[in-house]
Each structure stands twice: as C-alpha cells, then as structure tokens.
Design a protein around this nucleic acid. Structure first.
Length: 279
DNA sequence: ACCCAGGAAATTC
DNA sequence: GAATTTCATGGG
C-alpha cells in the first residue's frame, strides 16, 4: 500500500473499491457524519478524524503515520483485496453480481467489538436514524470528551454500574436493560470479546447469545462488524425479504467464506431499491 | 389513528 | 415446540 505523510494528514494512493458514502452509510456503523459532500468525521477509540476521497486517493485528516499504521489502515480494511472477493462472489449468483456493481465501494470496517455489540443491541426493532441518535446520546452522556462536542464510545466498564434510570436520557426504551446486561458481562469478564473473536463460529454465537437481548441477528452483526467474521450473514427484515425475492432457495452458507460482504452488498442494494419488494 | 423500524423475550396455543 | 404478542420510542 502506497501512502504519503503530509502535515497532520495521510494520503493513501490508488485505493480501489473504497467509497465513503457506500461504506459509512450502509448501516454497519453509526458514528460517522457527513460534514460536507463526501467528507466524513468519525470517532474510533479516543481518536477523531475527517476522511475524504479524491479520485483514487483516500485522505485521512487529523492523524499521524503512527495512528494510520496502528488504527486506520486496518479500520478501513485497506489490506483486503475487495476486487478479488467481488470477482469470486459475482460468480455465485447474477443478482449478487448486480448488487456488488451497484455499490462497488462498500467495505466491511474493523470496528471495536464492544462498540459493535452495544450498537446492534440498540438496533433491534429500531430504525437507523434513531439508532444513531441513541448512540450519540450514549457517547455524550457516558463517554470521555475528546474535543469540543466529540466523545468516545463508553466502555463496558463505564456502563456496567449504570441502572435503567441512569440510561433513561438515551430514550432507548426496552433496550436499556439489555445494554446494562451486556456491559456487566463484558466488564466482569464473564464474556471475553477478544476470545470470542477467535472461537469456532457456533461457539462464538452461543456465547454472545447468553447476553439478554442478544439473539441470532444481533450476535451475527457483532461478529461480522465488530470481529470481522466474514462468514457471518445477518438476517434482518430487509435481508429476509431480499432472500425470498432475489435468492429463492438459497441459504447464507451458499455465499461462502465471504458471505458477510455479500450480505452487505445485498442489504444496501435492497434498502436503496425498496420498490423491488412492493406487493 | 395506524404502521413500521438492521429483534428478542414473554406468552399462548 | 411453533406461532403470536409485547416491549419503548419516534417518524411517516
């Protein structure tokens, strides 16, 4: 990977298959905001950066070479060859090929396991704008201030001593008790997310589902988006519709070791084309 | 008023 | 065990 170090920013050259809108607004993450056209500000751990693209250059502002190599290159999954993965996936089914061509710049981010788990607990029976609002209030109320009005995602430990009443300002409804149970199990090391990340997939699913409010779909999202288990294939209401109408008779296993990437292409394609599912 | 939202738990059949 | 209802909240 070729990159240039500038004053307070990094420019990555010839990045293919990276589109910020497609990647940051496809429902896998909830903490990136478009601050001007094709320019996004987000928070990862205790760092905040602004990113943009210019032709095939990918620019990360407000960072150092150190943080780029430690955090950002992996976060944006820059070591993975999406062109090769798309070629393989496209041979599985013509509609999957179309979905991949519809948003060729989607990448699966390497998000923090706890943040992904907590975020997708909040996502259940909810819509994306409201999920973002709840998470914003969660960070502002319980995270650490980074600068100005930017706050880190609160750790499991930060939340483990909270009560449902403490979380009332989030207006997260029935999900508050689920957030607390997850925080307590992780903070007490009843569950070790770094360990779960490496377990055989069914063991990993089983452990995550010991958390109240974590069923098959939330577990699958935590594994795919927070632990980069690319074989995972979350089935939400959109994906169930898509499987019925676009891939009748097929199962998640049919999409193979990169099923999660296929899922993201299909999810985004379906959400952007709801007319496919009318009557 | 009604329906739905990147579901899961509680209840009923 | 499988099908249905309930759970908070907010937008359309």
């Amino acid at each position: 990977m070729k990159y240039t170090v500038n004053n307070n920013s990094i420019t990555v050259h010839n990045t293919e298959n990276l589109d910020l809108k497609e990647t940051l607004e496809c429902g896998q993450c909830f903490r990136w905001d478009e601050v001007s056209p094709n320019e996004y500000t987000g928070v990862v751990q205790n760092l905040t950066v602004t990113v943009k693209t210019n032709n095939n250059n990918f620019i990360i502002e407000n960072t150092s070479e150190d943080d780029f190599n430690k955090i950002w290159a992996n976060y944006f999954d820059l070591y993975t060859d999406y062109g090769s993965i798309k070629n393989k996936l496209s041979r599985i089914h013509p509609t999957l090929k179309s979905a991949a061509e519809y948003a060729p710049g989607i990448r699966i981010l390497n998000q923090d396991p706890w943040e992904a788990l907590c975020s997708f607990i909040i996502s259940q029976n909810n819509n994306i704008p409201r999920i973002k609002g709840i998470i914003k209030r969660l960070c502002e109320g319980f995270g650490k201030k980074i600068k100005d009005d930017i706050y880190s995602f609160p750790s499991a430990k930060d939340l483990s001593s909270c009560t449902v009443e403490d979380l009332a300002p989030l207006r997260s409804g029935f999900r508050a008790k689920y957030i607390i149970d997850a925080a307590q199990k992780v903070a007490s090391h009843t569950l070790d997310l770094e360990k779960i990340k490496t377990l055989p997939i069914n063991d990993a699913r089983e452990q995550l589902m010991t958390i109240k409010g974590v069923g098959p779909k939330v577990a699958e999202c935590a594994l795919l988006y927070g632990m980069h288990r690319l074989e995972c294939f979350p089935l939400d209401v959109w994906m169930k519709r898509a499987m019925e109408k676009l891939f009748p008779g097929m199962t998640p296993e049919d999409f193979g070791e990169n099923a999660g990437i296929a899922q993201q292409y299909i999810f985004h394609y379906s959400r952007m084309n709801p007319q496919l599912f009318q009557e």
